[in-house]
Every structure is written in C-alpha cells, then in structure tokens.
Write a protein that binds this DNA or RNA. Structure first.
Length: 860
DNA sequence: ACCGCCGGGTGCC
DNA sequence: ACCGCCGGGTGCC
C-alpha cells in the first residue's frame, strides 16, 4: 500500500503517532466502540471501521451536550483547517463539518478536530484559533459548527466558516473571550461565499435564522405541522402481500398492505432519503457529504398504526414471511427433533409469585396467570385441532417426533386460556425442550455462522406489560403445527447461551432485561440479529437513559419500531427513533440538531419539509378512521350501549351515605367560606370517590378524606401511604417510571410519586446531594421514601384473599353480564382471556358503560 | 507549501 | 559575523 523509501517510513511513523494520540483520547473519554478501534483500522486508510468508531465517539460526545433548543447564533468567524494531508476525511463544497475538542491531544490540549459527516477526520483547527475556541467549547459557552465553502481540494489547509451557537446569556462572554485572543465574531449580514441554496447550508441558515430570507412559520403553524407530521403519511402505500402459510390468521387488507410495505423496506436496495447518485459517488443533499460506498440503507422503519390495527399480527406475519432474500421463514421443512411448536417460555412475575417460582409446574395444576409451562424435560400439549391444514408430511414428522417425548395433557381451561380461544377448542399439545435445539435447518445458508447471512433470529423488545400479549399472539396467529422457536428471555433462569439464542426464530424480552444485561457480558449484545423490533418504541425517547443506550448498541440487520404514538411531545422524540434505525447521518446527534431539529424549532419551512420527507420515507401510519380505496380501514360492529340500573346492597348503601355526608360537609364548608372554586379539585375528588364507592367499596380506604394540608410529619406519612395504597389498588399506574416494569418493593416520594425502591435509590445515589424526582423534579431523599407498612400490607393481602374477597353489586351485575355475553360471542372470550394476562397482580376492567372506570382488585 | 520558519553554511566584489 | 544572505530541510495539533 505504501511506497518504499524514507518518505513512506516517515509518513508511517506519523500515522502511528496519530493513532496513538487518537487512541489515547478515545480510551480516556469514550467507552463505546473502543474495542473495535484497532491498529489495523487506522492503517487501512479509508477503512470504515475507524470512521465508524470516530463517528460513534462523536455521537457519544454530542449526546452529552445539551440540546440545541433555544440556541441563538452569536456570529461567524473564518477559520483555517490545517493538517489535511494527515487525514483521509474529505469534504465537498458547502459541506458541513463537525468540530470536536481533543483535550487529550499531547501536542496541544486546546486541539480542535475537524471531521466530516461520517466522522472521518479532515484536519485540525489552526492552533491559535483552537486555543480561543477551546476555552469557549470547554466551558460550554457555545457550540461551534463549521461549513467548508471553498478550498476543498487543497492539500494542506482549507478555510472553514465557523458559526457559534449558544444560550443568549453566554453571548457576551463568548464574544469577549474570542476578542481577547484576537478573534472578532462577525455578526453582520454578509452572506458567506459559496453558501448552498438549501437550508442545509450552515451559512445560509445562519443568515436567515432570525428574520431574513426564509419566512418563518408561526408557532401555531409549527404546532399544526407536528400534529400532522404523522397524519400526512396516510396516503395508501401500494401493494398488498399475502402472509406465509404458517400464519394462521387471515390478514385484513390494510395488514397485507403493511406487510407488503415492511417487506419492501427490508428488501429494497434504494437510497435512503436525501441521498442521490452523482457520477461514481453518493451524495447527501442536506449535508453535502458524499461517499464512494453506497450509504448504508435503513432496513426497517416505523410502523405507527393506531392501536388495534394489528401491529403485532403484522409483525408476526413479517417474521414468518420475509426471512432471507424475500423468502418465508423455513418452518415447514421439518427435521425430526424439531417438529411441533417449540416454545421456551416461563414465569412472568405473576406466575412465579403465584406458584413459588419453581419451573416444574407440569406436575401440578397451574395457578395464576402462568403463560407457559416449563419443565426440565419435554412436554407436549395436544394440538388445537386434529385436522391439519398443512401438508401431510409435516404432520407425519410431527407425530413421529412426539413419540419420543413425554406427553402431558394439561388442564383444559388452562390450555384454552393460553391459546386465547374458548374452552371448546380442545386439547393443546405443547412440546417444551430444555436441551439445546438442533441448529441446522434445511436452509443451507446457515452453515456460515457469524456472517451476516447466518443471522436468523428476530429480537422483540417490549414493555413488561405487553410481554404476555406477544406470547399469546404468537400462539394465536401461527399455525399450531408449525414449529417456531420462540424464546422468552426473561426471568432469573433465562438461557444466556449465545448459540442457543441465535438459533431461535424469535427471542422476546423486555426493555428492563435488556438494560440490565447491557454492559454486563450481555448475550443480547453479542448476537447479530436478523431483526430487532421495538414494541411501544416511543418509550426509548430519552437518549440519556441506559435503556436507550442499550437499544442503540444492538447489532441487527433490520430494525423496526412499533408505536402508536411516535411523537409524544416534540421533534426531539424522533431523534432516538432515527438513531435506532441508523438513518445516516442523523443517528449522530449533531447532524440531527443542525439539519433538522434546530431549523424546525426555529420555524424554518425547508427544515420542516426535510423532516416530513424523512419521516415519510420510513413510516407507515394509519388510524382507525383511515380509508383504503375509499373504504374504511376496519369495520367494527356497531357499538351498543346498554344502561343497567344496579341497586346498592344495604351495607353498600350505608357506606356510601357515610362518605356522601362527609363529602357534603366538606363542600358545604367550602361554600360557606366561598372557596369552592379554589378547591374545585378537591370537590372533584370527592365526587370521584363517591363514584368509586358505587363500583366497589374496597376501592376506598377506611381512612377518611382529609383535605387539609398535612400538619405533622406523621400525618404526611399517613397521607403518602394512603396515596401509595390508592396507586397500587387502582392498577392504573403500577409501572415504575424508572424501570418501566411493574413496581416492585414500592415506595412513594414526598412529592407523591411511586417507584421501585431499588430504582429510585439508584437514581438518588447517582445524583448525589441534590437528587430530583424523575417525574416532577422535586428534591427527594432516600430517608424520605415511604414504604407500605408491613401490617397494612398483610391487611391488604388478607382483604384480597379469596376467602376475604367481597364482591359488590356492580361487580356482580357486571360479571353476570360478561358471562352471558361470553356464551354468545367468541370475541369477548378472547378479550377476557387476554385481559387475564394484562397484569399479574390486578385484573383490570375498564368499562365505559359503567358510571366511571371500574377498577376491581381481584387478586390472584 | 509557487509559502514561512528553522538552523547550518558562509562571508568583498 | 553577537550580523545578513543563501539555500536545503521541513511542514497540524
């Protein structure tokens, strides 16, 4: 690669030096990606790996920086990039460059590195200027961005137009600091030379950012634009695709469309948004970056359909239909040992607590909401239906296999509940194997394990609350005689073997498990997944959360985000999604901020247009009111509302009257004081309590409603305990906002937010002296966390034990109606069996037809 | 870099 | 000459 001779040796020595310095820098400052930064990479010159590592490092650095929101432009400065000859990074006319401080540079601790969009180093800022910039950058007074307008072909140095952005209050400090070192920022209206016409040009935007060339959107328009960002995508995406035969549920037309779209997104080789081919090069029209290699395309996207449209089913269909090269997952070519539906799954929290957690449920009658049965050996549950719709060959193989395995017939109701179907669906045969399943399939490409072509597994990550739903849906929508290896990666005895996991068809886990594994020899991060699916993907919108980092570090060929609400608050939420999808170059925060977020928040039309284009390319969204070819997407049966008057029983009536008098007195007091309006929230609370009384008296505690401010610490404590009890009992808010799992060891903060004790303790210890509540930013202390008192806990348990459980008139009326309906409609029975899995601790019924939302704590 | 800078060689014209 | 001048070596931070 290099010529022989003195010059070559000298260059090589220099490069080694550079490598050592860069290495030093990375090893000290950045944790991620270091392992891939090897000597080989840097000597490979244009090698992708070094660039990617740099890119990751820049990304890591950028993510530590505060958001670009609210930044104002301080001014411009013409600077010089030097040392071009030592680096491989090249830039185009008008291209954006990144400026990264290198405090560890042994030659100059003020060094400022210049890198292009892909993170390839272009050069350094000349040292005198770097010294001035270092002060500003290190003290976070300003963020400096650069655009190269000319001299891109230069051998040694090139000019760069720098712009300084930061908080208004830092402006003077920055101007003075730069002036002290002899640099005067240009705040005038002179348009820099060579500025691009698009918004992407730093110079052009800088000039027009306040009020100038572009007509900014009004806040109102901006808000509408956000609201419509996803709504405008509903134009029909062409084509329908039939699901593979292994999918037992027929897809609705809109689901076939979604499947078709998803397959296309996974298989097509087109260029990502804003990339175009220019001669031999690929060119990004927003950043002006170009590359020889075809830009890595995004295999995947965001499925943002409204809830209820079948995102889960469509995803299951995708897994079975689009394996490699557009072919279905090879499930029908059975070999002996792997016939039948193999499923390793066990132990959601509820089941383990209900049955003391051992994995040997097969020998006893299952209790609680056990989703699946695990045995140390092998169990078979009989097929739903003896009449096989699949080929005889499959059936025969399957039979043969089942001879070898111990067979166990399970409780009929239980089996039916598992499948989500009604009782009369018959016996189920299930085969669960604890041994490593054979890895070789009929598909020959699997032989080269470790290469891309060997990836076979889809990893599904979801919140705990929908975990069981995925298992149910797999069982429900996949033909019973199809062998599909679905492994639930959850619970303390989960199989962490890489070989085992990567031989599955599907691995399901939770965000919580994923973060827990992250940085801890995580097998999930060591596997090259065929596909990673983030269910309820909007939960990863905070890029600082460990969970988000864990998700970003997964290796996969295809990536999907399922979410009914992809944007929760602002454009900011989108970044995490794009970063997960690896939509270059926006997966690096800086480019996202520069090209999309800041322009959009400043009301720039072109920026918004770019954002819309971006989102449109990767998202499919339909709502229930969407239409396909003039027909509604889904046709639901008409809703019928039946009002049934239910008489309270005598004891219920007495309790109700008690509460009513109490409430009336309180409100009467407010009226007398003339403070009703000021206390209207309390009035509503009283009314709510009365409605709860009507549903079930146990929804309320025996303690009376005391609306005055707590006078003593003891009173505050009692109040908090009461609130904690309400939260736990209501079932509406049992998730811990830190881990997103069901709350374990619940504690309540003085600001009345409920978390798992370990979770919030962790938060407090990392924030040290001034810890703040993740939900409301109030100051919190370990010593002020309030637990549910043990005796009350026992009291609660006693109250909800089956012997002590009391019903209520309304619950009785509801139950009799439900049972009556269940006999009539299969759909309802499905719903019932699903909701029994919704939560391990509480059975929640949300029925609009009742006076208010009725939350019944029924216990296990 | 068709520069600037450094430092060694050199020294009337 | 403790200078000037010349020309080769050299060159990011």
């Amino acid at each position: 690669m290099y010529e022989e001779g003195k010059e070559a040796v000298r260059l090589r020595e220099k490069e080694k030096l550079v490598y050592k310095r860069v290495g030093l820098m990375f090893s000290r400052r950045w944790r991620f990606g270091w392992d891939r930064f090897t000597e080989v990479d840097i000597f490979a010159g244009h090698n992708d790996t070094s660039a990617e590592t740099l890119s990751q490092a820049i990304r890591a650095a950028a993510s530590e920086e505060p958001d670009a929101d609210g930044s104002v432009l301080f001014g411009h400065l013409q600077g010089t990039v030097v040392g071009l000859r030592y680096y491989t990074g090249v830039v185009n006319q008008g291209e954006m460059v990144g400026l990264v401080r290198q405090p560890q540079n042994p030659y100059d601790s003020n060094a400022v590195m210049v890198a292009n969009v892909y993170g390839c180093q272009v050069g350094h800022i000349k040292k005198e200027l770097a010294a001035a910039m270092a002060h500003v950058m290190d003290n976070n007074l300003a963020k400096v961005e650069g655009v190269v307008h000319s001299g891109t072909k230069n051998k040694f140095t090139m000019p760069v137009m720098l712009s300084f952005w930061g908080k208004e209050e830092n402006k003077n400090a920055v101007m003075e600091s730069m002036a002290r070192r002899g640099y005067k920022l240009n705040t005038g209206g002179m348009k820099p030379l060579g500025a691009n016409q698009t918004y992407s040009s730093q110079g052009a935007r800088a000039m027009s950012s306040k009020k100038g060339v572009t007509i900014a959107l009004t806040p109102e328009e901006l808000k509408n634009a956000f609201d419509n960002l996803f709504e405008d995508l509903m134009e029909s995406k062409d084509g329908e695709k039939e699901a593979a035969k292994s999918v037992s549920t027929p897809l609705l037309p809109h689901q076939k469309q979604a499947l078709s779209w998803m397959c296309t997104r996974e298989n097509k080789s087109g260029l990502p948004p804003f990339w175009e081919k220019r001669g031999e090069l690929y060119y990004n029209s927003l950043t002006c970056f170009s590359a020889k290699e075809i830009p890595e395309r995004v295999c995947g996207g965001i499925l943002a359909d409204d809830m209820g449209l079948g995102k889960t089913l469509t995803t299951i269909a995708l897994i079975l239909t689009n394996f490699r090269k557009g072919k279905p997952l090879p499930v029908e070519t059975c070999q002996e040992e792997q016939s039948s539906f193999v499923k390793m799954a066990s132990k959601l929290k509820g089941s383990s607590s209900a049955s003391d957690g051992t994995g040997t449920l097969c020998s006893e009658r299952p209790q609680g909401s056990v989703v699946c049965v695990e045995t140390p050996d092998v169990v078979e549950i009989k097929d739903k239906s003896e009449k096989s719709t699949s080929k005889g060959k499959t059936k025969a193989t399957k039979r043969k296999a089942s001879k070898d395995a111990p067979v166990m017939l399970e409780d009929l109701d239980f089996a039916a509940a598992l499948s989500g179907s009604s009782v009369d669906s018959g016996l189920k045969k299930k085969r669960v194997s604890k041994t490593e399943p054979p890895t070789l399939r009929a598909d020959s490409s699997i032989s080269k394990r470790g290469e891309d072509s060997s990836a076979r597994t889809t990893l599904i990550i979801c919140p705990l609350s929908v975990l069981s739903n995925w298992l149910d849906q797999f069982e429900q929508h996949v033909h019973a005689n199809v062998k599909l290896n679905v492994y639930l990666y959850y619970g303390s005895d989960r199989n962490r073997s890489k070989t085992f996991l990567s031989s599955q068809d599907v691995v399901i886990t939770t965000y919580n498990v994923l973060s827990a594994e992250f940085g801890n020899k995580s097998p999930l991060h060591a596997i090259n997944w065929l596909r990673v699916v983030l269910d309820e993907g909007h939960v990863i919108r905070n890029p600082n959360a460990l969970m988000s980092k864990a998700v970003l570090e997964l290796t996969a060929q295809r990536r999907w985000i399922l979410s009914g609400t992809p944007i929760q608050n602002s454009v900011k939420d989108l970044w995490m999604l794009l970063a997960f999808l690896r939509l270059k170059p926006f997966d690096v925060r800086e480019w996202w901020n520069r090209v999309i977020q800041r322009p959009v928040t400043q009301g720039d039309r072109a920026g918004l247009q770019n954002l819309q284009t971006l989102v449109k390319c990767i998202t499919l969204r339909r709502t229930k009111s969407s239409e396909v070819d003039g027909r509604p997407l889904v046709s639901l049966p008409k809703k019928t509302v039946c009002v049934e008057q239910v008489e309270l029983s005598q004891p219920e009536r007495e309790e109700y009257e008690l509460a009513r008098n109490e409430g009336r007195n309180t409100i009467g007091r407010y009226v007398a004081e003339g403070t009703v309006l000021r206390n209207y929230a309390d009035v509503l609370a009283i009314l709510m309590r009365l409605r709860q009384h009507c549903c079930h008296p146990d929804l309320l505690s025996k303690t009376s409603l005391d609306l005055d401010a707590p006078a003593t610490p003891a009173e505050l404590r009692q109040r908090l305990i009461e609130k904690l009890r309400m939260v736990l009992a209501s079932g509406s808010d049992e998730e811990c906002s830190v881990c997103l799992d069901s709350v374990r060891l619940p504690v309540i903060t003085h600001c009345a937010h409920v978390y798992c004790r370990p979770c919030i303790a962790q938060v407090i210890s990392t924030q040290q002296d001034t810890a703040r509540c993740p939900l409301c930013r109030s100051e919190i202390k370990i010593s002020e966390l309030v637990e549910f008192p043990q005796e009350e806990m026992e009291e609660e348990n006693r109250r909800t034990n089956s012997e002590n459980w009391r019903t209520s008139s309304k619950v009785q009326a509801l139950m009799s109606n439900l049972l009556r309906l269940e006999a009539k409609t299969a759909a309802l029975s499905v719903w019932l069996s699903l909701s029994s899995h919704v939560s391990s601790q509480y059975w929640r019924l949300h029925l609009e037809s009742m006076d208010s939302v009725l939350c019944v704590w029924m216990g296990p």
